[in-house]
Amino acid sequence: MIESWTLDDVTPASPAAALALLREQIAAGQLETWLTSSHGRSLAVITNTDRAMVMLLDHEDDPGEHAITPKVAGRSGGFVLTNGQHDEYPDEDAVPLTEALRTINQVLTTGGPPADAAWSIDR
């Protein structure tokens, strides 16, 4: 069975439609988004509109895995969660938004990150 993803109780017709909806949400200031798969997995995207934390979880208690930018120094703030919390992450644990969108598209299309993406397994 092919995995499908739901975003805000809507199952987009395609990964491209999901990315379009995600871009709309970011443009509207909604910087935390969770997608849920038909297989019970979750894909979290938290952005400050420049960089994004992209996490893939197999189940609710899973420490998961996430996209990274290896060997980059610094920290970025402005990651606003839906509960109003403002987070800051090491730049190594987030990726540029364009890379995040490419990674999200690949996960939605194939179930996993791009082969050339830097990725940390946190399990």
Results as ranks from 00 to 15, higher is better:
residue 66 H to I: 01
residue 37 S to L: 04
residue 1 M to G: 14
residue 52 A to T: 10
residue 49 T to E: 14
residue 56 L to M: 08
residue 91 D to L: 15
residue 48 N to I: 11
residue 45 V to D: 07
residue 89 Y to P: 05
residue 89 Y to D: 05
residue 58 D to A: 14
residue 101 L to N: 10
residue 25 Q to F: 03
residue 36 T to K: 08
residue 43 L to N: 07
residue 38 S to A: 09
residue 76 S to W: 06
residue 30 Q to R: 15
residue 66 H to A: 01
residue 92 E to C: 03
residue 87 D to G: 02
residue 85 Q to V: 10
residue 39 H to T: 15
residue 5 W to R: 06
residue 79 F to S: 11
residue 92 E to I: 02
residue 99 E to N: 01
residue 120 S to K: 13
residue 83 N to Q: 02
residue 58 D to M: 10
residue 13 A to N: 02
residue 28 A to M: 04
residue 54 V to R: 08
residue 98 T to M: 03
residue 106 Q to I: 00
residue 121 I to N: 13
residue 70 P to F: 06
residue 9 D to E: 14
residue 13 A to T: 12
residue 19 L to T: 04
residue 35 L to T: 08
residue 48 N to S: 12
residue 49 T to Y: 05
residue 12 P to C: 02
residue 27 A to H: 04
residue 83 N to G: 11
residue 67 A to F: 03
residue 52 A to C: 13
residue 54 V to N: 04
residue 11 T to M: 08
residue 11 T to E: 13
residue 22 L to F: 01
residue 9 D to C: 07
residue 27 A to F: 02
residue 19 L to H: 11
residue 116 D to M: 06
residue 82 T to Q: 14
residue 1 M to P: 12
residue 3 E to M: 05
residue 99 E to D: 13
residue 24 E to L: 11
residue 46 I to W: 01
residue 69 T to C: 10
residue 62 D to M: 03
residue 24 E to Q: 15
residue 24 E to G: 03
residue 75 R to Y: 08
residue 40 G to S: 08
residue 87 D to E: 13
residue 76 S to A: 15
residue 77 G to A: 13
residue 64 G to A: 09
residue 45 V to F: 08
residue 8 D to T: 02
residue 119 W to C: 02
residue 106 Q to A: 15
residue 12 P to F: 05
residue 57 L to Y: 11
residue 46 I to L: 15
residue 32 E to R: 02
residue 102 R to D: 13
residue 30 Q to C: 10
residue 106 Q to V: 00
residue 51 R to F: 06
residue 11 T to Q: 14
residue 46 I to C: 06
residue 81 L to Y: 14
residue 25 Q to S: 12
residue 123 R to M: 02
